[in-house]
Amino acid sequence: MRRAAWGFLTPFLALFALFFVLPLGYALVRSLYAVRRPGLGFGPASVEFAALRNYAAVLADPVFRSALGRIAVLGLVQIPVMLGLAAVLALLLDAGLARAVRWFRLGFFLPYGVPGVIAVLLWANLYVPQVFPLAWTDLLAPPYVLAAIGNIVTWEYVGYNTLILVTALQAVPRSLIEAAAADGAGPWRTAWSVKLPLLRPALVLTATFSIIGTLQLFSEPAVLRTITPAVSAGYTPNLHVYNTIFTDDLPHLGAAQAVLLAAVTFALSIAFLRVTRRWSAA
């Protein structure tokens, strides 16, 4: 049995080590060094051990802190809205209130299959009042661009999360639904008192994935940055890391930013799982 278990685990562990552990370890090592140029910056460059100076610089960087705060606001609003919509759609599909359920599932999932660049370009055109009459103002202006990004992300991923929740609902024993109906519970009461509590593990899973994905947000602001000046080079943490490494040519500082972002992602995910576990046990 142990050999069989290790046989199933080995492919995952190998890919996990190759695409996660090794890159993170490489970034961690690079973050401990810095490029030094003597002679007022005109001398030959040399890589020197910098200890934690890069991390101190990142923590003191107002752009990086603003990007983390901005993404936190986005996640606190967008994730509950997205998962709430996904739960409602999943309950409607499971209740059989929609005809041609398979086509609805496909329709919900299609936005997830659209590349992020195309989705951003599509919505960017709809946000302009001259193109889309329902846009009462320029939604790519600074006061609204964060909400515009949140709308794009919601449109892309609500169907994906809906399918996960629908799959979880299909695992609910039909005997529980029949018992609720026999006790006189209608569709809404059954959904609220029976199905939603049993959806909690799936909702925790999708919420965890959404937290990780929100902190890694990159494609949407990167494309919008070419369209509107409201999105700066450091608008999101991941975008800030990219520009630090490839635009500012500071790979060691960018590595420190990436390691700190990974640490924040890990800490928030673990904290969320612990909080939800306590709520479940209460």
Rank of each mutant, 00 (worst) to 15 (best):
R3S: 12
R3Y: 00
A5W: 15
G7F: 13
L13Q: 11
F20V: 15
G25V: 04
Y26H: 13
Y26P: 05
R30H: 15
L32Q: 11
L32D: 08
Y33M: 12
V35Y: 05
P38W: 08
G39R: 05
F42R: 15
P44F: 09
A45P: 03
A45H: 02
A45G: 02
V47K: 11
F49H: 08
L52G: 05
R53S: 14
Y55I: 02
A56L: 13
V58N: 00
L59D: 10
D61M: 01
D61E: 09
F64K: 05
S66Y: 15
I71R: 05
L76V: 04
L76C: 05
P80W: 12
L83H: 11
A86L: 04
V88L: 12
V88S: 07
L89P: 02
L89N: 01
L93Y: 08
R99Y: 01
R99C: 09
R99K: 12
V101E: 07
V101M: 11
R102Y: 04
W103L: 15
R105F: 05
F108Q: 04
F108M: 03
F108R: 04
F109D: 08
L110H: 01
L110C: 00
G113D: 03
V114D: 02
V117C: 02
I118T: 09
A119W: 08
V120E: 07
V120C: 11
L121P: 03
W123K: 00
W123N: 00
V128H: 13
P129Y: 04
Q130F: 13
Q130G: 12
V131S: 04
P133H: 03
P133F: 02
L134G: 01
W136D: 15
L139Y: 00
A141W: 02
P142I: 11
P143D: 11
L146W: 15
G150R: 05
N151I: 10
I152Q: 08
T154E: 09
V158W: 08
G159T: 00
Y160R: 02
T162A: 09
L163Q: 04
L165Q: 06
L165D: 07
L165M: 12
L165F: 09
T167Q: 10
T167W: 07
A168F: 00
L169C: 01
A182L: 12
A182W: 08
G184Y: 02
A185I: 12
A185L: 09
G186T: 04
R189D: 10
A191G: 07
W192E: 13
S193M: 14
K195M: 10
L196E: 06
L199W: 10
R200W: 03
V204H: 07
T208A: 12
F209D: 02
I211D: 03
I211C: 04
I211V: 15
I212P: 00
T214D: 10
Q216V: 15
F218H: 12
A222Y: 14
R225L: 13
T228E: 07
T228N: 08
V231S: 01
P237F: 10
P237V: 01
H240Y: 15
H240N: 11
V241E: 01
T244D: 10
I245C: 04
D249M: 14
A255V: 12
A256G: 13
V259C: 08
V259L: 01
L261S: 01
A262L: 07
A267E: 05
S269I: 07
S269H: 14
R274G: 12
V275D: 05
R278W: 13
W279Y: 10
S280P: 11
S280Q: 14
A281E: 15
